[in-house]
Every structure is written in C-alpha cells, then in structure tokens.
Nucleic acid binder design. Structure first.
Lengths: 206, 206
DNA sequence: GCGTTGTCGAACAATCTGTGCGGTTCCTCG
DNA sequence: CGAGGAACCGCACAGATTGTTCGACAACGC
C-alpha cells in the first residue's frame, strides 16, 4: 500500500509516477463529469487504463486518491516570515485569491458538492492559522478574549471559502481575482473592523 | 413507490405514518452516529425494524428519505406579508436563528458534513428569496445593479449558513440564539451597510 | 544482463442495492 | 362486527461495487 511517494527526490520508478498521475487525472476528469460520489473505482481504473490491483497498490481508497490530488494543490501555509509589523491589514487576501484562482480546474473538481467536505476541512485549517496569525499581529487583537478571536477567525475563513464557492460558479468564473478580492474586502472587512474596533482601509464601491 | 404522502389530510392508515416516522428517526439517529455517507439502507431498516420491501414502498432512495426529513424542517419561506416599510433593516434575523435553533438536532443531522449538500441547496434558495425581498425593500437597493445585488444576497445567505454551521459545533451548541444573532449582525451588517451605502443599526461589542 | 519492483488480469468473498412475490396482519368502511 | 383491501414481512434474487489475492509477465535501475 502506498509504495512510493509522489515525485520524491530520489528519482523513482517511472512506472510509479506514470500510474499515479494517470489515476489522479482520471479521477479529476470524472469528478468534473459526474461528481465525486458517482465515480467508482472501476470508472477510475478504466479511464486511467490501470489494473485493479495496481490501484490498491497505490491508494487505500477513492478518498485516499482524492487526498493525493488535494495535496498537489499546495495551499500556502501561514508563511508569516516576511511580514512586517506595519503592513496593511489583510493585505494578502488578493494573493490568496490569485493562488486559488490559478488552480481553478482542480478546485472545481475538489470543491464540487460532496467531495469538498474533506477538502474543505483541510483547507479551512490552514486558512485559520493564517487568519489567526494576522489577527494577533494587529495590536487590537490583545483586547479580545480567545472566544471572540476564534469567532472572528471563523468568520474570516468562512466568508473567504464562501467567496471561493461563489467564484467557481459558472456565472462568475470569468471574474478577475482583483474583483473578487475587492468584493470580499468591502463586504467582510467592515465587520471585522467593527468588532475589533480597528481602522481599516475599506474599499467601497464593490 | 411513495404510497401515501406524509400525514395527508384524509387521516391515513396509522401503519403508514408509523413506518415513515420510524424510518425518519432511524436515519436521523444513524446520521448523527456515523454520518450520512456511511449509513446503508440496511442499517436504516434494521434500526427502524421495518421490512426491506416496505422501505422501498415508501421511499425511492436513501436520499429520498433524507429529503422527507428535510421537508419536515419547514424553513420559513419569504413571508414578507406583514413587513412594514420602516421596520428596522434585517430585523428578522434573530427570529430566523431561533427557528433553526429549535430544530437543532435535526439540523445537525442534515447539515453534517456530506449530506448537507442537498439540504444546503434547498435552504439556500429559500433564504436567498428572503434576503432579496429585504434588499429590494430598502430604498438604496435600487441604486444597485443586478450583479451587485446578487453578490450581497449570496454574502448574506452564505454568512448566515456559516454561522449556523458554527453554532452547531459542540463548543458553541450552548450559546443562546441572541448571542449568535448578535455576532452575526456585528460582523455581517457593517459590510452590507458599506456596500449599500446605508445607515444600519450596528451592534458593536460582539 | 540480473535481480528487483511494478503491473496485469482474473477470480474471489463480502456487502449493498433494488425488485418481486407469496403470506400474514391490521386498518377502514359499510 | 365482518369483509375487502391496504400495508407489512421476509426471503430470495440479480446486479454492482469493493477490496484482496495470486501467478505470470514486463519494465526498471544498477
């Protein structure tokens, strides 16, 4: 089970990476076509043209394969190393939208309806760390007890993912990351400023 | 298939309502125990102590049964009939939280992870109508084009459901509807006011 | 080239889904 | 109260899917 990791440094067997790649692509395609729940392992190995036993030699589950796909998405962790104390508050949201936007295809597959549950949880956790780091950087954060802070964090992350969902919809797919970010900031940040009693740069127009 | 509808007016066979009720409760319990996806029809009929064929005499699917449960939740439609033109803006959110809070058990089952997808879509639609009605009631709404209005509606509904999710979590289950509503208003409404260029009563403290 | 490793393909038990059909029990209506 | 019928049971069934096993074979790295 799980013989060789993805494209590990010690250049592994070509067959392995080929197989894993074929399986990932097959599942991604199939999810986009009929949704995660409706896809069977049989479908995947047919599409990938891979033997049944081979599938189980690499992945425990259909879910396991999904996880592998998810891992490729590389949601940026809380890379707070290069933050300066007086950067504008929440200045990094645009970059975040851009990142997610660039992998839209995979995200649409992963986020689509049901399968998202697992994916969401993972992503949510990373984003919460990000938000948490940002809040504790802003001076007013210390005036908040843990409960309120946690509430604001959940709000930030929840709305962010909500905007991603909205962005992924057909009607809004064409929107540039800048516009999505702008909408996010003008709708979300005022509330945060209100609760934290902070002054933030608030875009208006939408 | 689907012999008699739920508790139809012409007082139907007692056995029918009994069976349907047993099945609904069984599924509800099982979802709370192991999650919707993991529950099999077999589990349900075992728990409900109902014959296999009887299940399929009433419901097409596991999903169909879920829908029936969902229907019992009776999300209030956009009952805008008794609104007065100068009611405070979004004055009905507390009532809404109270309503959802009263059926928490069912909601936890339905909203939990995966199964929520279907439920969410239904609920979202009703809530969007509500929000839409409210926005068009506020005078400033006319200054917004359809796109912006739709964006605000999605934001309102998305955050509302987000707060419901948050409320359903173990740690927050005990919170009174008032507090949840208060948090909702102080985090969400400022953004709406900002975009709509409206003056709203904004609670602060959280 | 040689040993190792990955892959194939087919067969397997186990589980679940929907459907069908007698036989039994309970309800409703007259 | 006593048909007649509706609802239920339970069992058996075909079809699908999952995850495992195995021997044979091919591709790989060294």
């Amino acid at each position: 089970m799980a013989i060789g990791r993805d494209d590990a440094r010690p250049r592994r067997d070509r067959r392995v990476s080929k197989t894993r790649k074929a399986l990932k692509e097959a599942l991604t395609d199939l999810i986009l076509e009929k949704g995660y729940e409706a896809v069977t392992v049989q479908n995947v190995i047919d599409r990938a043209d891979v033997g049944r036993s081979t599938f189980y030699a690499h992945f425990v589950d259909k879910d396991d394969l999904l996880m592998a796909i998810l891992a490729d998405l590389e949601v940026p962790g809380p890379d707070t190393s290069d933050w300066k104390p007086d950067d504008p508050a929440f200045g990094w949201t645009l970059e975040l939208f851009r990142h997610f936007g660039s992998g839209k295809r995979l995200f649409k597959a992963v986020a689509s309806s049901q399968s998202g549950a697992v994916a969401r949880r993972e992503t949510t956790q990373r984003l919460e760390k990000l938000a948490q780091a940002e809040l504790s950087r802003l001076k007013a954060a210390r005036t908040l007890d843990a409960f309120k802070l946690q509430t604001v964090v959940r709000f930030l992350v929840g709305t962010f993912i909500g905007f991603m969902d909205w962005w992924m919809r057909e009607e809004n797919e064409h929107l540039p990351a800048e516009q999505v970010d702008h909408a996010f900031r003008s709708l979300v940040l005022p509330g945060v400023a209100n609760v934290l009693e902070l002054e933030l740069e608030l875009p208006k127009s939408l």
